[in-house]
Design a protein around this nucleic acid. Structure first.
Lengths: 224, 224
DNA sequence: CGGAAGGGGTATCGCAGTATACCGAGTTGA
DNA sequence: TCAACTCGGTATACTGCGATACCCCTTCCG
């Protein structure tokens, strides 16, 4: 476990040690510099404890730009978010250096039924979900255009909210412009203006004070 | 468990049910509208499952502005981040409505030594730590001035990195301007300019390609 | 019933970050 | 040894957001 001075993360040593001691749960692996450990969009139950080397974790935005979440060095963990909430990877991991790591697989972890295990598993999955949401919100803030920031927020909320069965229209929570501003990092004035444009473009429908999304499946129509 | 249409979050129902079934782990509680459930900066081992009502989760920035993370309604969980990683609350929770919730306490949870529990606990704490880091990075992106974004990133990295014992100077990971740009949501040009200003102000020292922080304890000197 | 507060629509202005382009220094590799 | 590439420094013009201020409408509450 050599120190790589470029890591941007660290986890408490005793927690890492606990994981290292569970030898029956992992197998060692190596990955060469420049190779991909996992890719955004994949599904997998595996996560990794890094022994030596350096892994870059990043999210690629729709427009191709890269949002770097972290450089993970030895004594850090990556990939556990998607391995726990069982959804698609929200980030990609590439080895910046030749890297040695321990590969864990959560596939059979729900089987244990005694003691605290079920509660811990449930709690862990929810925490992982929160981690995902935070990472995606972070990524959203890399949008410069107010319209995109708002639409990305709305699309996320649409996935959370109960859909109206008959239509493809999602009803969003009641949020004031000020709330939206405080969630997207803009001023209230900018939110008001951007919503205006979104309404005239037909991206958002307003109906007695509540927002609705038109066609919540596809992504925002960008500029052009 | 009534639906509040203003929640911006949801957790899978079966996970919530698992937690609700662990009756020995929680006690029911009520909190009146406008009252504080917990406050940023406190330490606590408690977390909450919301039964009905609405809780606003937000981070208050140094300049007093509020960053709203979520409105949590029934069937959601809050406060588990700090309850698991045992650090100070990074967010505040206020009841927007009269709210009924289940209060869990993680205080004695490390005692169990058999089966998967220790591994799950360790993994959960790391996941909680990641959640915290992501939330704080989200908050950082609400800074408009490039200098502040960079300094907040650097301060976070300084806490991760090993300090040099003799001096109060923290050595940061080797990051190119482009890396910093991809981590803070700015362009490379803006990063270059902002670093220039930070260096001339003495906030950052550059020494053969590596950044160092001067007096990493106190916060960035803002504008003025 | 009337005042206060909150929400939202709008205007003006200045400034600073983005986009883009170019250059030079240092490093790598054939 | 030279070419290719990366990294950082810098200049230009544009544009669109932040700050601020004001107005109006609705709701709430005494």
């Amino acid at each position: 476990m050599t120190l790589d001075s470029r890591t941007t993360w660290a986890a408490p040593a005793e927690l890492i040690r606990t994981l290292q001691e569970a030898r029956q749960l992992y197998r060692p692996r190596k990955i060469g510099r420049g190779h991909e450990l996992y890719r955004q969009g994949e599904c997998s139950t595996k996560f990794y404890l890094i022994d030596s080397g350096l892994i870059k974790i990043s999210i690629f935005r729709e427009d191709g730009t890269e949002v770097i979440l972290e450089f993970m060095g030895s004594g850090t963990i990556c990939g556990e978010g998607a391995a726990l909430d069982r959804l698609a990877r929200f980030s990609s991991a590439v080895a910046v250096e030749d890297t040695e790591l321990l590969e864990f697989d959560t596939a059979g972890w729900s089987d244990e039924e005694q003691g605290m295990a079920p509660v811990l598993m449930a709690l862990m999955r929810i925490t992982a979900l929160k981690q995902r949401v935070l990472a995606l919100r972070l990524e959203q803030l890399f949008s410069r255009e107010p319209e995109n920031r708002i639409m990305e927020l709305f699309h996320r909320l649409a996935q959370m909210a109960p859909q109206i069965p008959e239509s493809s229209i999602a009803v969003l929570p009641q949020l004031t412009h000020e709330h939206i501003a405080a969630m997207t990092g803009m001023t209230r004035v900018t939110v008001t203006r951007a919503l205006h444009r979104l309404r005239s473009r037909g991206n958002v429908i307003q109906h007695d004070g509540r927002f609705r999304l038109a066609g919540s499946t596809e992504s925002v129509q960008k500029g052009a």
